[in-house]
Design a protein around this nucleic acid. Structure first.
Length: 283
DNA sequence: ACAAGACCCTGGCCGC
DNA sequence: TGCGGCCAGGGTCTTG
């Protein structure tokens, strides 16, 4: 499940393998992979373009092209970008493929659950238009933490929901949200308006730290669906303290970690270190 | 304007 | 063994 660290690992791999190469063909195999465009722009606009750079914001990454266009990529939950030999047979779940003029290798986009997608942005802006609403992530040099802290505290919502809101701070998904909350000893259901600036800031620091640690180790992987461009899985899951650790002892106090339902997904936390707020009675 | 829930999708896994 | 149902969950859209 790619969040910021996993996407960054992929971006680095793509940068190493793709910059300077000229695209010769772009083929789309599944309409959902290009649902925010049609498939036409890919086959029409990409051939002949040279990849000059790569970039990332939050969980989105993009290839900068000398044609002024940008090829935006989002991995969704199960997307993989694989640099494969040109004659390699396609995975069953291959959704799109780029070939290059040098013929050295292809880029294969593989995505079992089809939440990932490609977008062609023709604006030429520094930040592609389709992700103009995505906030800076905690690794962005321009990330303004005091402003983000205030934005979170202005929201009428709970802390975990705010952490997952990509328009406030990007890159954090369910896994790193749970890890950051555990590290900050805060329950995700805490109302953001009742939190101190310090508590919110500590949580953001924790998110940055846990994602940095994951990045050092090549990203997190749980179900072999996430792999980097060479097909190697990350292994940060061995270092998790909360996510997926139901019934395992909390590393701080030994209390078994509990799983709770939240936003149609799972939240993991320590019932002692992360005190659940009292539910406000609504008459 | 804003918050919250629905929906999209596939395959592994579980219980019956 | 077969099958229904659940689970994983980011982002966008719809509803309230």
């Amino acid at each position: 499940m790619p969040e910021l660290p996993e996407v960054e690992v992929v971006r680095r791999g793509l940068h190493e393998h793709l910059v300077g190469r000229q695209i010769s063909a772009a083929t789309v195999f599944h309409p959902r992979a290009v649902r925010r465009n049609t498939s036409e722009p890919f086959s029409a606009a990409l051939p002949g373009a040279t990849i000059t750079d790569t970039a990332r914001r939050g969980k989105y990454l993009w290839l900068v092209l000398d044609s002024v266009d940008a090829l935006l990529l989002h991995l969704g939950m199960s997307g993989q970008l694989l640099v494969v030999p040109r004659d390699a047979s396609a995975s069953v779940h291959q959704r799109a493929r780029l070939s290059f003029a040098d013929g050295l290798s292809d880029l294969s986009f593989v995505d079992q659950r089809t939440f990932g997608h490609l977008m062609l942005d023709r604006g030429g802006a520094a930040l592609p238009a389709p992700i103009a609403h995505i906030a800076r992530d905690p690794f962005d040099p321009m990330f303004d933490q005091p402003a983000v802290v205030d934005a979170i505290r202005r929201k009428d919502t709970v802390l975990k929901r705010a952490l997952l809101d990509q328009s406030i701070v990007s890159g954090i998904g369910n896994i790193y949200a749970d890890e950051a909350l555990w590290a900050a000893s805060l329950h995700g259901e805490r109302r953001t308006r009742g939190l101190s600036r310090l508590d919110v800031s500590r949580t953001l620091d924790a998110a940055r730290e846990v994602m940095a640690a994951a990045l050092d180790q090549g990203g997190t992987s749980f179900d072999a669906l996430y792999v980097n461009v060479n097909g190697a899985s990350g292994y940060f899951d061995r270092s998790l303290h909360a996510y997926g650790q139901r019934d395992w002892p909390c590393a701080r106090c030994g209390t078994p970690i509990v799983r709770e339902s939240f936003m149609n997904r799972s939240s993991y936390s320590c019932p002692v270190c992360q005190k659940r707020p009292r539910v406000r009675r609504t008459r």
